[in-house]
Design a binder for these strands. Structure first.
Lengths: 342, 342
DNA sequence: TAGGACATTGACAGCGTTGTCATTTTAACT
DNA sequence: AGTTAAAATGACAACGCTGTCAATGTCCTA
């Protein structure tokens, strides 16, 4: 019933170790031998046992995905991306949701790592920004790849995948500017998140480049949540829109949806009286009325490349085949929630 | 650096095997010995190696979560629930998204199972309904727990967790009836899904109990998607609402959101001219305008109990401590999208 | 106080791989 | 053909734990 490496070896007429070499794609196996072994593998439908590999080998075949992001769409996308690479490479994925409010998160982390020795970790924001975590991992000698909001720096090229929120925010803001808006509010997330400051700076840079004076009163700091989007829109627009805002940049789709919701309550027509934009292009940016103009962030692709980067580090030169993109810029998607200033 | 069972044994002054007994909570370890060993475990901060346990033991410490549900919120909830139990019991979770359109899904499945011998699987709908899969698992002798839409039957009590959609749909429909609605449309999912027929039957039963004649024209079959919700609402309400519909039951929150969207397009006021209800209470049922009346489905709790049920089967009598609920009925949550008939 | 029954513990092999190092085969030279 | 270096393969221990079964300890009974 259960097929082991020995069965394959016997059928192929080689030693166990040679089969091991073949399935690990080690060099220094003769082509002919390789083919014979692969034939045996296929006829027996052999699947190497992960537990044994993890136990015996120096490197492991499980990678961890660590996240601390309340957004389900985001997590699923990241998960699927990493998973698709894992499947290809024969790795297994264990997921590890975290709560950064949780004080014993680091212990939790260590436990997980001890339990199943890991090939490496993929860290998603905002967790990937926490230096205490990174330091701990460095200290423990654990491989990792961080998905980060930011503009690439030479230094961290090989452990980071950057999402250029700055650029994307610049683009969205430019879009609104080109529609004639000049009084543009910003519903940002909390400033501890790198993405918040990046998006904010992109927004400000675009305004500057169009010679529009910055005004801090136009910025509302929320928590990337629907509720804080509602609050933010109410706060900025007030009862009679004293700041004469005609466009609102949501820090993410959820906040934009909140702003949409608030606008309804206040009887403001979108986009006629107010343009609203999102960020991330999560599915529900298409499920609002009107549909959200937003910046599409290809999370599944991003996480695939994160996984690739991790595997490259883990398995050394063995699979350098595919190119790895380390910087992604979300791209503008224009829908119905933004329109010309009237 | 790495602490093994031997280190613990040495420190505690017992044999390796006794430590093993302690960490596996086997009976027949003297209380005193137990305490000594646990002390050693704690001072060394010992974490048993999962790979070794899986390799050496007859039972495994990894469980699989298999899903084929496009709804991110649902998946995350299920995942978190199962994960929380796993953490407690020292298990590890590997996730396995499927695509039931994919023809070689079953092979995929087998590969996964061979790779890492599993303690068992948690199957979520609609995958849990597919008898071909169940048969395969039975044949392979794999433990599993199915989360299913349905009313409990005695027979499958020990491998199934039921979500009583029938009852919930009955309740939602009754809610609408009590508001005075008599012409109630139903935007259901595709009929291959068990949940669709369950919800449909609940809806019909409620109508019957109120002596309202059933009318198939009031039922639109979609795919549980936002888009099909839009289409369904358009189809049922037509240009001049020939069926005189004053309330619309969404098969799930997404379809309800779609109906909301369509209503906006058609200039129908919610809930003044039309009541709309959802199903599942996913986060975005609170992020629509108006917020959706829906049936709350506690997916995280459901999946926790699914995991418990699995562990009970896996580990035999070792942890019978907590009671397991095997039937859950989503409960009505009244929000702003439903109102009295005017 | 001896004998037996049962509870508790330990010694050791084995799970299915990979790492190390020794051995054989091949290729590349004189 | 003979030598040598390099490439290809194999033998065997080890990874950290659990299962088996034998050994010891404890408590009871007569």
């Amino acid at each position: 019933m259960k097929v082991t490496i020995n069965d394959v070896a016997k059928l192929a007429g080689v030693s166990m170790k040679t089969v091991s070499r073949v399935i690990n794609k080690e060099p220094s196996v003769r082509k002919k031998t390789y083919d014979i072994v692969m034939d045996a593998v296929n006829t027996l439908n052999y699947q190497p046992n992960l537990a044994a590999r993890n136990l015996a080998g120096t490197s492991s075949f499980t990678v961890g995905l660590v996240y601390d992001n309340p957004n389900a769409y985001y997590v699923i996308d990241m998960q699927n991306g990493v998973l698709s690479r894992c499947k290809e490479e024969g790795y297994e994925l264990v997921i590890h949701p975290c709560n950064y409010l949780d004080s014993n998160m680091e212990d939790d982390f260590k436990t997980m790592i001890k339990r199943s020795r890991l090939a490496g970790l993929v860290l998603t924001p905002p967790l990937s920004e926490q230096s205490s975590i990174i330091d701990m991992l460095d200290e423990m000698g654990i491989h990792y790849v961080r998905v980060l909001s930011g503009r690439p720096t030479d230094e961290e090229q090989d452990t980071c995948i950057f999402v250029n929120d700055y650029e994307a925010a610049y683009e969205i803001t430019s879009h609104l500017l080109s529609l004639g808006h000049t009084h543009i509010g910003f519903l940002c997330g909390d400033k501890e998140h790198k993405s918040t400051t990046e998006r904010l700076e992109g927004y400000q840079a675009a305004l500057k480049d169009h010679n529009i004076a910055l005004n801090d009163e136009l910025i509302y700091e929320g928590q990337y949540s629907f509720e804080s989007g509602v609050e933010g829109a109410k706060a900025l627009l007030g009862t009679d829109n004293p700041l004469q805002i005609t466009a609102l940049l949501g820090g993410n789709d959820e906040m934009a949806a909140g702003a949409l919701f608030a606008s309804r309550l206040m009887g403001i027509e979108i986009p006629e009286q107010l343009s609203i934009t999102g960020f991330e292009d999560s599915p529900f940016s298409r499920q609002t009325w009107p549909k959200l103009t937003t910046a599409h962030q290809a999370n599944d692709v991003i996480s695939q490349h994160a996984a690739r980067l991790l595997f490259r580090k883990t398995r050394g030169a063995r699979n350098q085949d595919k190119e790895i993109i380390t910087t992604f810029t979300p791209s503008l998607v224009v829908r119905e929630s933004s329109g010309p200033k009237t």
